[in-house]
């Protein structure tokens, strides 16, 4: 392991680098807005169906149930306005020399850690709504399974591409040092 060229060697085993003390970077400020829009569109569809049922059904029980359903629907719309910004703020990523971390979740908090030298490929994706707000989602894949291993939403295009090229560069460097000195 002497000549690995690994630049992190100063770190002794006794004091491993700690991942929980990381400072996470936030996502785009417009992220909460895209979330609210997404939710309200879904909400509007459900509400429209409910109203349709309520006003046009000949069935009295159904009309009664759908009338009462307006209350939770209203509460949901209201709560989206409150929790979307909180959720958006709870998400963020942190970069270290050799890995990337993504935290998410307001109630159930989750942190995913991905070492650069395990990244198989990276994808940039932006849906119509994201394009409207000039945002993209960066997806990282490892050999861990078919699904996305890490997904960082709401990045501006320049930020996403910079991040991508940084990660790929780091991954490439890790790969290269592996090829040279794997013994």
């Amino acid at each position: 392991m002497g000549e690995t060229g690994f630049t992190n060697e100063a770190i002794g085993e006794a004091s491993l680098p700690r991942a929980q003390t990381l400072a996470y970077e936030g996502l785009a400020p417009t992220y909460a807005r895209t979330m609210i829009i997404e939710w309200l569109v879904a909400w509007a569809i459900v509400t429209a169906v409910n109203s349709g049922l309520h006003f046009f059904t000949p069935n009295e029980t159904l009309a009664f149930i759908t009338l009462w359903l307006f209350i939770p629907l209203f509460l949901i719309a209201l709560s989206v306005l409150i929790w979307a910004p909180l959720v958006a703020r709870s998400r963020g990523f942190a970069l270290r020399e050799h890995d990337i971390h993504y935290k998410s979740g307001l109630i159930w908090r989750k942190t995913v850690s991905l070492p650069f030298n395990r990244i198989q490929h990276v994808e940039l994706e932006s849906g119509p709504l994201e394009r409207l707000f000039k945002l993209t989602t960066l997806k990282f894949f490892t050999a861990g399974g078919g699904s996305t291993d890490m997904k960082i939403p709401a990045l501006t295009f320049t930020r996403a591409t910079t991040l991508r090229s940084y990660v790929l560069e780091q991954a490439g460097m890790a790969e290269a040092s592996l090829e040279d000195t794997a013994a």
């Binding site: 690995t4 690994f6 491993l16 850690s113 070492p115 395990r118 890790a174 040092s177 592996l178 794997a182």
Partner: peptide, 16 residues
């Protein structure tokens, strides 16, 4: 988590 990341990043061994 810290030990796993340290092993992956410092040992630089091929995983397959």
């Amino acid at each position: 988590r810290d030990a796993i990341l340290f092993q992956i990043e410092s040992r630089n061994k091929k995983w397959m």
